[in-house]
Computed example of a mutant assay.
Amino acid sequence: MKQVRKAVFPVAGMGTRFLPATKVVPKEMLPIVDRPLIQYAVDEAIEAGIEQMIFVTGRGKNAIEDHFDIAYELERTMADRGKDVTILDGTRLKPGNAAFVRQQEPLGLGHAIWCARDIVGDEPFAIFLPDEFMLGTPGNGCMKQMVDAYATTGGNLISVLEVPHDQVSSYGVIAPGGRNGAITEVTGLVEKPKVEEAPSNLIISGRYILQPDVMRVLETQAKGAGGEIQLTDAMARMIGTQPFNAVTFDGRRFDCGSHLGYVEANVAVALERSHLADPLRASMRAMLDR
C-alpha cells in the first residue's frame, strides 16, 4: 500500500460570500488570528507526513504562491531590526514541494481535482478544502487521524461529522454501513440531499484520501448539483469497486466559508492561545453584558 505523499488544495474559488474583503485578497488568505486559512491546512498536511502540496488556483490567487515562497526583503529587514525571523519558517515549503496548476473555468470541485491529475500521477492523494477549518489536538489533526486509519483500511477515506438532520441539505452525506470505532463503511454518497431523503446525518467534512482511479472517473463525470462536476458523484461511482470508509473526526470543525463559522474559528483559536484566552473571555463577557 503506497504512502500518501501528495495533497491537493482546490483554491480557485472567488470567495464571493466575503466580498468586498476578497476583491483582491484570496479567501484562503483570510487570517484566523494571525495565520491564513491555507497555512493551517498545509500545516495539517505536513503533520500527517504529506510531502508535496498541489494548489489548484485561478486568476487573482498569486498571493497564495507568494505566501509559500521566501520573502527576501521582509526577512532581511526583520533580521536587521533584531526581530525573530523564525516566525516565517512555516510559510516556506521545501524546494520542489509546492506545485501550482490553474483551473481556468469554475466547473466545480470535481473538475478542480481533475486539473491536478498529471501531478498526482498514479499515487493515492489527500484533498484539503481550506474553508473547512478542522481544529484538533496538537499532533493529532484531522488528516493525521485519517492517515493512521488508512494504514488499516487502505482504499478511499473521507472525514465525516454529525450535524443536525435539518442541515444535511447543505452538504454531501454518506449512507453508512458497518462501524468499527471511528471508522464507518460507506455504502453510498449523496450530494446535498433533501432532508427527508438523506441516508444519514453524517456529512463529508472537507478532508479526503482517494486512490488515483478517481481521476479516470472524473474524466467522464457528468455535471451534478448546481450544474457543476461534483467530486461526491465521482466518489459514489467508485463505491463497491474499492474499499470506501469514513473517519469520524475527533475534533471541531468550523465552516469558514460562512461569516459565522469564520468568526467562531477566530474565537476558538484565540481561546487556545495562552496570552489571549483570559483577556478575550473578559472582553466577550463585557460585550455580552451591554
Rank of each mutant, 00 (worst) to 15 (best):
H165E: 11
E132Q: 07
F133M: 12
I113T: 01
P130N: 03
R117L: 03
V214Y: 12
D89T: 13
A98R: 11
C142R: 12
M78E: 14
V190A: 03
D213A: 14
L210Y: 09
I209G: 01
A112H: 07
L93H: 10
N156M: 08
D131N: 13
S169K: 11
L107F: 11
G110W: 03
G108I: 02
T86E: 11
N140Q: 12
T152C: 04
S169Y: 12
I158C: 14
E123K: 15
V147Q: 05
H165Q: 14
G110Q: 08
A112R: 10
G154R: 07
A126F: 02
S159T: 14
P176K: 11
Q145Y: 02
K144P: 07
F125V: 04
E196D: 14
E123R: 14
L189T: 05
K94N: 08
I204S: 11
V147N: 09
N97D: 13
Y208D: 00
Q211S: 13
F128P: 00
R76Q: 08
I158M: 13
R81D: 10
Q103H: 09
E191K: 15
P199C: 00
D89Q: 07
L210F: 13
P176E: 05
L129E: 15
I87N: 06
L135D: 09
E75I: 03
D84W: 10
